[in-house]
C-alpha cells in the first residue's frame, strides 16, 4: 500500500482579465505574451473569502468520495491568505462537511507550497495518520501584487485546485526531493509598500535550473514519472525547464497562457487542466516540480488514478 492521488478538482472563480487591461500601465499584449506567455488570467473579487473558494474545489471531491468521515486531514496551502487567526483550513472543513475528527492546518511555502503540501499529505497517508488527505491550494495573488507594477501585475493571478490522497495497493511509493537557501531571500519578497519584488533575471535562471534538477532527481530515484508538471511561473521559465528535460522523454506541461502564475495553485490547476482536456490518461505517475520564494524548491513523483468521469 502506498499513497497516491485519487481525485482532483478545481475552482477558478472570478473575472477573466486579458492583456488589454494592462495598457493603462504601458504594457502591450505582444510584450506580455513574449515576456510571460500569458494571454489571460483570473482575478477574484477582493471581498471573496479564500475559504469559500477552497471549499468550491474540495466539495465535489468530498461528494464523489461519499464518505467524508474517512478524510483524516485537510491541508490548505496558500501564500496569499491574509487570514492568520483563525486559519483557513478549519472553515473549509466546515463548509465541505468534514470532521470533527480531522487534522486541519494552513501551509505556506510560496510557490513550492503545493509540492510541500503534497509531500506532507502523502507522508500522513503512508504513516497511517490518515486514511485520506485533502490537499488544497488556494491563491489570490491579485491581492498581493501592486497592480501598477509593470513587472508583476500581469504575471500573477488567482486560482484554486485540490487533490485527494489515499493509500492503494496498486500505487508505487512516492519520491520527493526538496531544498532551500535562505541566503537568496531577497530574490522574491513581499515589499513593505505592498507588492512583490522579483529579481527577474536571477529568478529565471535559478528557477529553470532548480526545477530541471528536481525533475532529473525524480527520474534517477524510483519509477519514472509519465508526465512532468512544473510550477507555472512564467512561460519562458517553463520553456527553459522543457529545454533541460526534453531528454527525459515525457510530456512537459505548459498551461500558463490562460491561467497566469497562481503561485502554489499552478501545479494542481495545470494537472487538472491536462486531465480535463484529455491530454493525460486517467492514471499514471505525476512528476511535479516547483521553485519559489525563500528560496525553496522541490519535486515529488506520485502515482495517480482518477476515474475518467471525475476528471474536472
Amino acid at each position: 500500500m502506498s499513497a497516491g492521488i485519487v481525485d482532483v478538482a478545481t475552482a477558478k472563480p472570478g473575472r477573466t482579465v486579458d492583456n488589454e487591461h494592462f495598457t493603462s500601465i504601458g504594457l502591450t499584449d505582444e510584450w506580455i505574451r513574449r515576456r510571460s506567455g500569458i494571454a489571460t488570467r483570473s482575478w477574484l473579487p477582493d471581498e471573496t473569502p479564500l475559504a469559500e473558494v477552497a471549499a468550491e474545489a474540495c466539495a465535489p471531491i468530498v461528494t464523489r468520495m461519499g464518505t467524508p468521515s474517512s478524510i483524516g486531514a485537510l491541508i490548505v496551502v496558500s501564500t496569499s491568505s491574509r487570514q492568520r487567526i483563525p486559519g483557513v483550513a478549519q472553515k473549509v472543513a466546515q463548509l465541505v462537511g468534514l470532521g470533527p475528527s480531522v487534522l486541519t492546518f494552513d501551509m505556506n511555502a510560496a510557490c513550492c507550497g503545493f509540492v510541500y503540501g503534497l509531500v506532507t499529505g502523502l507522508s500522513l497517508c503512508d504513516a497511517g495518520g490518515a486514511r485520506s488527505v485533502l490537499v488544497c491550494s488556494v491563491e489570490a495573488m491579485s491581492r498581493m501584487v501592486d497592480r501598477t507594477d509593470r513587472q508583476t501585475a500581469c504575471i500573477f493571478a488567482d486560482g484554486c485546485a485540490a487533490v485527494l490522497l489515499e493509500d492503494r495497493a496498486e500505487f508505487t511509493g512516492f519520491r520527493h526531493v526538496a531544498g532551500c537557501d535562505g541566503s537568496q531571500e531577497s530574490l522574491m519578497r513581499e515589499t513593505d509598500a505592498g507588492g512583490i519584488h522579483l529579481d527577474g533575471m536571477q529568478v529565471y535562471d535559478r528557477a529553470v535550473r532548480r526545477m530541471a534538477e528536481s525533475a532529473q532527481y525524480l527520474f534517477d530515484h524510483g519509477p519514472a514519472p509519465t508526465v512532468l508538471v512544473g510550477h507555472q511561473a512564467n512561460g519562458r521559465i517553463l520553456e527553459g525547464v522543457r529545454g533541460f528535460t526534453t531528454h527525459l522523454g515525457v510530456p512537459f506541461v505548459n498551461r500558463i497562457e490562460h491561467s497566469g502564475n497562481t503561485s502554489s495553485a499552478t501545479i494542481p490547476l495545470a494537472f487538472a487542466g491536462e486531465l480535463d482536456a484529455g491530454s493525460l490518461p486517467a492514471e499514471g505517475r505525476l512528476g511535479a516540480v516547483a521553485y519559489g520564494a525563500g528560496e525553496a524548491w522541490g519535486g515529488v513523483a506520485v502515482d495517480y488514478r482518477v476515474p475518467a468521469a471525475t476528471a474536472p
Binding site: 515576456r35 527577474g200 533575471m201 529565471y204 535562471d205 527553459g240
Partner: peptide
Amino acid sequence: LDSLDLVELHQQLERELQVKGDLR
C-alpha cells in the same frame, strides 16, 4: 533582446561549452 533572452543565452553558452558562469 530582452533580459530573459540574455539569461537564456548565458545558459545556452554554459551548456555548449560545459562551463559554469556567473549570471551576475
